[in-house]
């Protein structure tokens, strides 16, 4: 991947120029799906955009010292991490990539959640600290399953290159991996039933409690970009390999939308679980599948 392709992917498609409107659109779909399930009309189409601009134009409380600087930095790091993850997705055929970009993608996907943990502790609010502790516990539990699932898909193909993974032949192992990723996505996106870190009405807004104005706008954007990256990752793994550029892009958008609809319906239909139930769910129920997936992948690799 040369510099021009990398910049085009980061800034135009599937990067910022596409991902920011897509993030707002997915945030709207999330709220609208909940509204429709409750037989309401719900927010207007432009609502996430209105919220974003309004928050940008709001004042922030004065923040002093190194803690204040950190509080300003975390949302920006989270946004850039999520935007970088979206930019790495192999949406267009033969759009470049490099050996090992899967590892970079996983690291960038993890960055917003790390920032949330740090943000809650640096805000020094008791609710922020509780939210961060929950996010840390959640992250430790779902990431094992998430990483094992992706590793199983990767090791069955003998590669850490995303483009090869996206164009791999159909196999039951791939679907096992995709299901495991799907199980982890609600926790990664902090939606019900795993909306523990930002549990509204329970610990106010969790790690985001002390954030206001433009900083909060950046957190909302980071959340939207996480939606794009998470749904997009599954979409690229699920999508059949198509040679035409625009068709591949349209299929990517359609599949991402289906993922978002699926996840927001799940969020609207479920209630929040307690932290111990969530941790137990990931460590006891889903870990078995992830271990099965990776062991069968390794087994197949040694046989071939």
């Amino acid at each position: 991947m040369n510099l021009m392709t990398a910049l085009a992917r980061l800034l135009i498609f599937p990067g910022l120029l596409f991902a920011v409107p897509a993030a707002w659109f997915f945030l709207w779909v999330e709220r609208k799906a909940v509204a429709l399930m409750q037989e309401r009309i719900g927010p207007p189409f432009m609502q996430p955009f209105f919220d974003f601009v309004k928050l940008l134009a709001k004042n922030t409380p004065p923040r002093r010292g190194i803690g204040g600087m950190l509080m300003r930095a975390w949302p920006l790091i989270a946004v850039s991490g999520a935007a970088g993850a979206v930019g790495l997705l192999p949406v267009l055929p033969s759009s470049g990539g490099f050996e090992g970009d899967l590892i970079l993608l996983l690291a960038l996907l993890e960055l917003p959640s790390m920032c949330i943990i740090a943000a809650g502790f640096s805000s020094r609010s008791i609710f922020g600290e509780i939210g961060s502790a929950r996010e840390a516990a959640l992250s430790v539990s779902y990431n094992i399953v998430f990483l094992l699932a992706i590793l199983s898909v990767a090791s069955s193909q003998h590669t850490f290159r995303l483009e090869t993974l996206a164009s791999m032949p159909d196999s039951p192992l791939r679907w096992l991996g995709i299901v495991a990723i799907l199980v982890c996505l609600p926790a990664k996106l902090h939606i019900n039933p795993f909306s523990l870190p930002n549990a509204e009405q329970e610990i106010y807004a969790g790690p985001m409690t002390e954030y206001a104005g433009p900083e909060l706008a950046m957190w909302e954007l980071a959340h939207g970009l996480e939606w794009v990256a998470g749904a997009g990752l599954v979409a690229t793994l699920v999508a059949p390999h198509i040679g035409k550029g625009w068709l591949a892009a349209a299929l990517f958008i359609a599949l991402s939308l289906v993922m978002v609809l699926l996840l927001s319906t799940l969020a609207a239909a479920t209630a929040r679980l307690a932290i111990d139930t969530t941790v137990r769910f990931y460590w006891q129920c889903t870990l078995i599948f992830a271990v099965l997936a990776i062991s069968s992948a390794l087994f197949m690799r040694f046989r071939s």
Binding site: P44, Q47, Q201, I203, Y204, A205, M208, T209, E210, L216
Partner: peptide, 11 residues
């Protein structure tokens, strides 16, 4: 419909 959201934090 009016964009109203009940927030937990006054910030």
């Amino acid at each position: 419909q009016l964009g109203v959201r009940l927030e937990g934090s006054p910030r």
